[in-house]
Design a protein around this nucleic acid. Sequence first.
DNA 1: CGCGGTTTTGAGAATCCTCAAAACCAGTGG
DNA 2: CCACTGGTTTTGAGGATTCTCAAAACCGCG
Lengths: 249, 249
Amino acid sequence: MDAPEIGRQYPCAQCPLRRLDTFREFTPKELAFIDGFKRGELVAEPGSAVLTEGSNSAHLYTVLSGWGFRYKLLEDGRRQILNLVMPGDFIGLQGSVLKEMQHSVEALSAMLLCVFERDRLWSLYANYPALAYDITWLAAREEQTLDEHLLSIGRRSALERLAYLLLFIFSRAKARQMTRKNTLVFPFTQQHIADTLGLSLVHTNKTLKRLSAMQVVHWHDRRFEIVDHDKLAEIAGWEPAPETVRPLI
Amino acid sequence: MDAPEIGRQYPCAQCPLRRLDTFREFTPKELAFIDGFKRGELVAEPGSAVLTEGSNSAHLYTVLSGWGFRYKLLEDGRRQILNLVMPGDFIGLQGSVLKEMQHSVEALSAMLLCVFERDRLWSLYANYPALAYDITWLAAREEQTLDEHLLSIGRRSALERLAYLLLFIFSRAKARQMTRKNTLVFPFTQQHIADTLGLSLVHTNKTLKRLSAMQVVHWHDRRFEIVDHDKLAEIAGWEPAPETVRPLI
DNA sequence: CGCGGTTTTGAGAATCCTCAAAACCAGTGG
DNA sequence: CCACTGGTTTTGAGGATTCTCAAAACCGCG
């Protein structure tokens, strides 16, 4: 199930992600604890399952690099992608806190993951209330994102939905310095976009073409460019979220 | 904005909700802390706003009785109901942990709410890791519910979606002993159901009629009855969630 | 009896879906 | 270097689902 695990690489204090502005500063003490909490690193191959619905994984992960997605399936195979997984994301909490995982996570590109032992989560709560609070923060944040997606899928038209999703992806990528100017390269196919939006592949493609024809975005070969940001935001009904710093466990 | 607050009623140890099997036992010490955490009780009139998007409420609430719903609006008024709010639910966490509330909560019937001070949330984390863990549990649980709704709205047909929602509502109500046999009385109109499902009112009505004609459910005058549970579950693709005990803050 | 909110019905239209096939494209092996 | 392959994108066409508009029916309440 899991990709082969490779040894411990670098200590958390040297984690390159921490240098990004989006992540809050941690105290040396906190860093030391997380360092001990961390059990190693894991490489997930593209297409491999990182977490599986129904299992109760003994691990929690923080994404160091690469792209993935969280999804659920219906019995007949219909798939809904719940959220994208990007560097800095903390995944597997549901499986640790509740009985078992109710969704799966798949790696899209090669991913490097920080591995934590679920058993030690309790000692985090017992000894580092600030970190416990951070985990709650992350959970609340994910909830907020899902609220927004629910609004989008439930009430926005295909065009609006797509515009919203592209802005969402772009802004998250930007905070992680994964963009260049107004372009972003990522491994999602239109099928993934369709499954995120709750649309069919064909209709997603046509909608994308429409945005393209409107000179709002360009999408070609896993590279997408925001041509007219204002227009895109207007279509999406996007209001820039208050810039917040997030914890990085 | 808020309904008039009424004085403190009974101590947490006597809380009638705690007698329900769905809620886990708390230690006397935990109960004592929560008792101190609790600031009073609040009555929300039907139709009143309990929490408002954009504000950053100084309070957190646990629902003691009554029905409400969590929702978001698009600029032009389109509404998406994100989840129902029922007794035992803990609301307002997003507003406390993050900068501000990104959704609203409205009372549907008269609601009685337990009021907690956001400022004291930190001392909960600092002194009662088990309770902190419980809050994370609740957040993870809400996330799981939203995942499921997202799957439903994104990938299920109107009929499947409605079947799923009815089962969801019923099972939650049942755990709180708000059902009688296979019937449940609640204050939701078909408009609320429509806004939860991401459908129009008209189509929701027609779908409901369809379920009715199939002899699967009856819905009349805010009273709904599950006539054929198996059939309903089959339509919904419902798999009964593992029965879990939940914390009651 | 009239009123406001809710449910119901009908009808036509828009959106989105499925099916099917073609075009495209990178990688592979001959 | 070229044909072949599998995955992805694109296009067309017809059809199903869901929507909007509009009006009627219903129902508890004053």
